[in-house]
Write a protein that binds this DNA or RNA. Sequence first.
RNA 1: GCCCGGGUGGUGAAAUAGGUAGACACAACGGACUUAAAAUCCGUCGAGGCUAAUCCCCUCGUACCGGUUCGAUUCCGGUCCCGGGCACCA
Length: 856
Amino acid sequence: MLPYPSGKLHMGHVRNYTINDVMLRHLRMKGYNVLMPMGWDAFGMPAENAAIANGAPPAEWTYQNIGDMKTQMQPLGLAIDWSREITTCKPDYYKWNQWLFLKMLEKGIAYRKTQVVNWDPIDQTVLANEQVIDGRGWRSGALVEKREIPGYYLGITQYADELLDCVETKLQGWPKQVRTMQENWLGKSEGVRFAFHHMIRRDESSASPLHLQGEGRDGDGFQSATDNFIQDGKLFVFTTRADTIMGVTFCAVAAEHPLALHAAKSNQEVADFIEKSKTGDTTELALALKDKEGVATGLFVTHPLTQEQIPVWVGNYVLMTYGDGAVMGVPAHDERDFQFAKKYALPIKPVIDLVKSYSIEAWQAWYGEQGVCVNSGVMNGMNFNDAIDYVAAQTKLHGGEKKTTWRLRDWGISRQRYWGTPIPIIHCDDCGAVPVPEKDLPVILPDDLVPDGSGNPLKKDARFLNCACPKCGKPAKRETDTMDTFVDSSWYFMRYCSPDSATNMVDSRSEYWMPMDQYIGGIEHAVLHLLYARFWTKVMRDMGLVKFDEPFTNLFTQGMLSAECFYRQDEAGKKRWFYPSEITIQYDDKGRPVSATAIEDGKPVLMGGMEKMSKSKNNVVEPKDIIAKFGADTARAYVMFAGPPEQSAAWSDSGAEGVYRFLKRLYTYAVSVKNASSSSPIGDFALLSADAKKLRYDIHTILSQANHDYTRLQYNTVVSAAMKMLNALEDKKSATCNDWQIARHEGLSILLRVLYPLAPHLTWQLWSDLGYAAQHGDILDAPWPTPDAAALTQDEIELVVQINGKLRGQIRVPKDASKEAIEALALADASVMRHIDGAVIKKLIVVPGRLVNVVV
RNA sequence: GCCCGGGUGGUGAAAUAGGUAGACACAACGGACUUAAAAUCCGUCGAGGCUAAUCCCCUCGUACCGGUUCGAUUCCGGUCCCGGGCACCA
């Protein structure tokens, strides 16, 4: 995944790109043609914030950072093809964002509508949910308002079915966790949508239905988000539990629902409630803790099956953004409805036979359970599925139907931001919103503006703003909203295949490289980026631009890197964080760390445990410091050695030092081997001495383990394997006989190749110093080592002898010993005999090559 | 609340198909070298017991309880805890 150019390369980047590079070099040596490209996710808010702080254009800051990060990346020795480098804030890239957006407009995939957003009245901009803290803008501190403003949307919901199906059928190479998260995000629910009809006010004796159609349309002629929910006095609801329809005792609508807005006109209490729900904390936590609250509208609807009159309430727990913004209230079978009903003393009517006891307490344990309908008139005795079908059929007259509802909503891409791809639209007083003609692309973003923190500087830039309407030629204004930066990252990987094409977004070269065989990145992108990229790919496929359905065949999510942190807390509760270099740790006699003190005053400091590396906690490890101290090979190999790549790993300076020691030992050893013989000796492996054969056996055993670990991306144990090989080689270091030289050179050449993907610099040098390059060519072109079957066969093997599953002895047997011979040898072992001690042997189990188990 | 992961020494972790638990390292401790320190090298290193003994040997031990099996870190059922994701989604 391409990085955001923050200017600082952190250890997370090092981990990500090292995994990539190790895989790449390994596969390259195995003969594959491999491509590792790199790019910069260069648009976005941090650049604008830096620009405000520095009083300089974001472009300057961004390009400076790209240069800085590249400089920090290069010493790591990543085999990146820089000729394909992509920078998303360059016009030759974002032109294609605009181009595809226009194509989507033509096809009806992109459209304009009004949206309810968090609006910061001081900064004059939309805020993302994460930017609203305690109901206030994170930068301005102003109370955030909910506003309906027009914006552009991409119809990702049109692809909901395919996006879900492919998770099952085409993403087998993705981690299960990510697939589940995508499924949850799509959130498919099957149920029934139906209407409560004949809406009345109870105090109206005429009881004539209200007609509310048309209310809620906004001024500019676009269809309002709040439209379509009421037709001819009908209140539509969606439910997954239509089988509980006979238990409905009220209906509840969202505060933004047209029905609530209508009721507010004649009911001050409702109006106050709606006003209250507009402000207030919108964070998830606050929502979860909030009490179920509501107010009666005074309106009643008719139950489609019983014809009973059902009161309509406004409820704060009903979401306008899901289903129809209205629910049927069944307190006996839904926890939220139950809480609401209890608070406002609404009736509770159980209609599913779940438990014999009808006490509310007993009932609550059964929320969500399916059962047989009871207390439900004609529906009595129906099971879940029959009841659903029945309700769908019975409500058909008033528009009832079985329906699938998705949690997924269309993707709003408009941002009231400067540093992003301009949306290629021109607003004309006469012609409305007119797409920029293809020949006029790209709409260039001026890169010399300096935002001052109040609103979008594009709105104040006459050069950008003023233009002629492409339709009628009259003076018009450009759209000043820019695209969500997730657009940039939705297809950049395809552009790597044809980065130089001036005439096409992608060309036929993408067929060679795409779909991507291996995508590697953080779990934090499990939903948004990966879902958008999948959607974007399918859109491009439907436009005939690419031929594949899914962009990423295999996905690998690497774990976080954390590091130990230390702090002191003053009386006010304020924490002071110490750098590890400012700390001394005390150990008990078993080597357990028991306390820590500050070097400056010798007084105690608290140990905060392992935390995600964070500037504020002073536990960030800088790649450049590590490279300066130990070199790139240590940095790479240690980051891989620290733990399995998919798990989070803890950084430890002494751990890195351990890897550093290993590389130094390897160097010293290789030099000694080189000095012992000028060229690598050649001889028949079969004729070697027993000692030399043992070395070959060890090396080739470790090699087969390492090869297996390479295939499953478990690079931590590959580093272990390299260490084991060196340990085996260093044994009998001083032996100088020819046999030993032969086995030693073979082992060392295997070790160097196994370690090369992890520590390419040192191994490349040694490979050439030892003369292997002259023999086999550059290490990168050398054949990947495979275990020699002859080396792996031993004349004698060791077997474990168990008695009742407990280890009691070892025996050495010839490799082709018969079962009978093994049994006899096992029972003759002194330790085994002692343990059997006359007991009756019931059974003898011989597992070839492994063990003997004596059951007594 | 729901859905995913995970729980193994002082620490990071290993154990490929159910077959010697703790490989490989780190830390700690002891020693060699050194005037000294660093670096380097060697040794000990799950808990408890037996013992003159850091020889041997025995018992226990992979969160907890139970099951399957000749044999379970691994498979099954239940419980607890930790991490991540989603969440008034009707």
